[in-house]
């Protein structure tokens, strides 16, 4: 892999992070209203206190958070902190810092997403490949239409319907949350089974909605691959159909799907954020929804930055691994 490409790609990674951090820094300062004062006022009114003293407290907090310094000093300090993943304190739950709240939620999201994305990828890719394979049952061809229609529907819409059908009308699966309230989290079989049972509905809505995307892409690639000379040659040699399908067709058609995986990652993540919120799944999405309704800006920006960071890392990894997957790729000047 040429050094030039590597440098450009890594630089793009840092530009994305810098852009996200900069946006997070300047947006709240351009927006009307002062989160510190708003928060204090709302707490004062909840406590039935008079407003006297609030202005002094605002000033004290501003000094505490460094909000009284010149803008560029704040910006520099902000970048310095963000690149250490220090997003400051949560406004809504003051003594709590943002980062531990995010890291507590992150494993839930990653677990749900990785498992359901893998299922969607495998099922969708197989479905698409079979739909384009001439000797596969016709049945698979009829599945493409519905899969496509499902993929056009936002994940979270599907999940509302699923909750209503399989948790309210026929209560087969739990309504919400990541595990039963009565159970103590721990690394034992009943707890793990409980977690799995809670993950089925949210996971299923992600799989169902993401399936069509993979099926369509794969079908397109498979159509071109099955016309290649080496496939005809393999047929002429009299190889078993199964072998031709997997080793000659699938193996060669699957590569662009990997690129698509990198591209779709963002959509998958943002779609599942809302799915989590609907299921009150204890991941990033629910945390984000709660942060939004409490106007907890530092938490919102922290979550957004962490998601941007993970997606940027994942796409970087896929881009750098790609030449190992497909030896035909070389990163000369495009």
């Amino acid at each position: 892999m040429p050094i030039g490409y590597l440098v450009r790609r890594v630089m793009q990674f840092f530009i994305v992070l810098w852009g996200a951090a900069t946006l997070n820094f300047f947006l709240p300062r351009l927006a009307p209203g002062n989160p510190v004062r708003d928060r204090l006022l709302s707490q004062a009114s909840q406590g039935g206190l008079l407003q006297s003293g609030v202005e002094e407290m605002v000033r004290a907090y501003n000094a505490e958070f460094g909000l009284d310094k010149p803008l560029w000093v704040q910006y520099g300090r902000y970048l310095y902190h963000v690149f250490q993943l220090d997003f400051g304190f949560s406004i809504a739950n003051y003594p709590a810092k943002v980062l531990p709240m995010i890291t507590a939620a992150l494993p839930w999201t990653i677990g749900l997403l990785v498992v359901s994305s893998c299922w969607a990828f495998v099922i969708g890719t197989l479905l698409g490949a079979l739909a384009a394979w001439p000797r596969a049952p016709r049945f698979f061809r009829y599945l493409i239409g519905p899969a496509m229609a499902l993929s056009a529907i936002p994940y979270y819409m599907l999940s509302i319907v699923l909750v209503y059908l399989f948790a309210v009308t026929w209560p087969i699966f739990p309504l919400s949350r990541g595990y039963s309230i009565s159970r103590l989290p721990g690394f034992n079989l009943p707890f793990i089974l409980d977690v799995l049972r809670h993950a089925i509905l949210p996971g299923f809505s992600i799989v169902l909605a993401a399936l069509g995307f993979w099926a369509l892409g794969m079908r397109g690639m498979m159509v071109t691959t099955r016309g290649e000379d080496y496939v005809t040659f393999a047929e002429a040699k009299g190889l078993r159909d199964r072998r031709i399908f997997f080793s000659y067709g699938l193996r060669n058609a699957i590569l662009p799907q990997m690129t698509a995986f990198a591209i779709s990652l963002g959509t998958v993540v943002s779609g599942s954020v809302i799915v989590e919120a609907i299921f009150a799944y204890p991941g990033i999405g629910t945390l984000l929804l709660r942060a939004i309704s409490a106007s907890d800006y530092f938490l919102i920006y922290g979550i957004v930055f962490m998601i941007v960071l993970s997606i940027a890392l994942a796409t970087l990894a896929i881009d750098l691994l790609y030449p190992f997957l497909d030896p035909r790729i070389s990163y000369r000047k495009a």
Binding site: V16, P28, P32, I292, A312
Partner: peptide, 20 residues
């Protein structure tokens, strides 16, 4: 190219949350 690698919804969430 750079901005397309970031999910648009996240950028929109940041902006919209600031002017809710």
């Amino acid at each position: 190219d750079t901005s397309l690698t970031v999910p648009g919804l996240l950028i929109l969430i940041t902006i919209a949350a600031s002017i809710k």
